[in-house]
Design a binder for these strands. Structure first.
Length: 130
DNA sequence: GTTTTGACTAGCT
DNA sequence: AAGCTAGCCAAAA
C-alpha cells in the first residue's frame, strides 16, 4: 500500500538524522518528496511500533530527533514531551524549557537540514562513475 | 459506512 | 507578533 511506503520512507529518513542532532517534521517530509504532508510524518511517528522484531521500531528509529518547525517538542500525551527531552539530553542535545513549560532546542547548534538524504547523495555519486 | 482529530506548516491577518 | 486558515490524509471516534 502507498501509505505503508510513506511510513517506511519516513522511518528511513529519520534513521539518517545524526546522533546529537535534530530536524523537523516538515524537513523530513520534504526530504522524502512529500513537502505538503508534514502532518503525515507526525502520524507515522505516532504509529511507530514498539515491537523489537519489526524492522522499524522505537529503538531502531531515533524518533526523539524530530521536533516541530518552532524548534520545540510537539505536545502530545502527558509526560511524553518530558520523555523526548530526556532522550535528547541523553545524547547531548540541550533542551530548554520556558515559563509556559514548552521544551525547545536551538537549531543553530543542533539543527540538521541537508538538501538530500546522505543515502541519496551516495546514489548520486554512484551514477557519476563511468 | 461518515465525521472529527491531530507527533504539522507556510502564509496571511 | 500572536493568532487564524487552508491543505494534508491516516486514525480514531
Amino acid at each position: 500500500m502507498e501509505k505503508d511506503r510513506f511510513y517506511a520512507s519516513v522511518y528511513e529518513a529519520i534513521q539518517e538524522v545524526p546522533y546529537g542532532k535534530v530536524t523537523t517534521y516538515g524537513h523530513i517530509a520534504r526530504l522524502i518528496g512529500r513537502p505538503e504532508y508534514p502532518r503525515g510524518v507526525g502520524t507515522a511517528l505516532k504509529n511507530l511500533p514498539s515491537d523489537a522484531n519489526l524492522r522499524f521500531n522505537e529503538s531502531s528509529v531515533p524518533w526523539q530527533r524530530v521536533v516541530n518547525a518552532k524548534g520545540s517538542i510537539s505536545p502530545r500525551g502527558p509526560g511524553s514531551q518530558r520523555r523526548q527531552a530526556d532522550a535528547l539530553g541523553q545524547e547531548g542535545v540541550e533542551v530548554s524549557q520556558d515559563a509556559m513549560g514548552e521544551y525547545s532546542v536551538n537549531f543553530g547548534e543542533y539543527g540538521w537540514f541537508p538538501e538530500l538524504l546522505p543515502s541519496e547523495e551516495a546514489e548520486m555519486a554512484q551514477e557519476q562513475e563511468s
